[in-house]
Simulated scan of single mutants.
Amino acid sequence: MLSLGRLHLVTDTRPGRDPLTVVRAALSVAGPDLVVQVRVEDTASDREAYDLAVRTAELCTEVGATWLVNDRLHVALAVGAAGGHVGADDLPVAAARRVLGPSAVLGATARDPGTAARAVTAGASYLGVGPCHATTTKNGLPPPIGPIGIRAVVDAVDVPVVAIGGVTVDRVPALLAAGAYGIAVVGAISSAADPARVVATLLGALSC
């Protein structure tokens, strides 16, 4: 199975957020155990995505952490990221694999066993599965699938399943019990008064 950090921090670039400050705080605690997924708003330009990815790469390189770029695979290639992540409205997984090459980390979004299995067959290294719980971080999401939905996907594939969507510290045990390999977090970290403390708590929950 792919060796990948179990805590994924997805950058939050909504107005009023400071993603690099949050990434820096998270890395100060998690170091190489953190995976940073660079994600920008759909309205952001490629240049804005590139600039954030470059700065994130610098921070991650300092501590040996892995970074990926969501959606914009050309940016992932441009900054030398470990790989990328594609959602339902992005390039098909097989096409994304051709773009990134055979050795890159490629995540794909799924919420049911059939979609998950097809993504793995097409070349996904891991799956981001959810939303697990209700979240306001991203608009237009389908209904939450909960731990039961996570378990259904876990039983259908042989790659790491990373739960995403409304993930908080108190919800981690149930997600792990459902078979999730790790968690991807946006709001619980980016909106915290002390992001580093939240990261430390999440890492503790993941190690139980």
Rank of each mutant, 00 (worst) to 15 (best):
L77V: 11
G182T: 03
M1S: 09
V79R: 04
V105T: 11
H133K: 06
G123N: 07
S125Q: 04
V162I: 13
T43Y: 14
T66Y: 07
D33Y: 03
A44Y: 10
E62T: 13
T109H: 05
A110E: 00
G83L: 13
R171Y: 03
A25L: 08
A200D: 04
R97G: 11
V199E: 00
A205F: 07
V93D: 08
G123A: 09
D155L: 15
V185I: 14
S190A: 14
H133Y: 15
V159R: 14
D51M: 09
V105G: 02
V99K: 08
V162A: 00
D18C: 10
V22L: 13
A81D: 05
V79Q: 10
E41F: 12
G140E: 11
I145M: 14
R111K: 08
L20T: 10
V154N: 08
S207K: 10
I189W: 05
A156G: 12
P102D: 15
T11M: 07
G31S: 08
S125E: 02
K138M: 03
G31L: 06
G64H: 15
P131G: 09
V167A: 06
A196C: 13
P143Y: 15
A95E: 13
P173V: 05
S28K: 09
L175A: 02
V35L: 12
M1Q: 05
I189S: 02
V93Y: 12
A65E: 08
T136M: 12
A88H: 14
L9Q: 01
L206V: 02
A57V: 09
A95D: 12
V29L: 11
L9Y: 00
E62G: 05
P142D: 11
V120L: 09
C60K: 11
P195V: 07
S45P: 03
R6A: 03
L206Y: 01
T168C: 09
T66D: 02
V157I: 10
G16V: 14
I145P: 00
G166E: 02
D46K: 09
G114C: 08
V99Q: 04
P143V: 13
R118T: 09
T43S: 15
A134C: 14
A163Y: 01
V120N: 07
D112G: 05
L34F: 01
S191Q: 15
L52Y: 12
A81R: 02
A78I: 09
A152Q: 08
V199C: 07
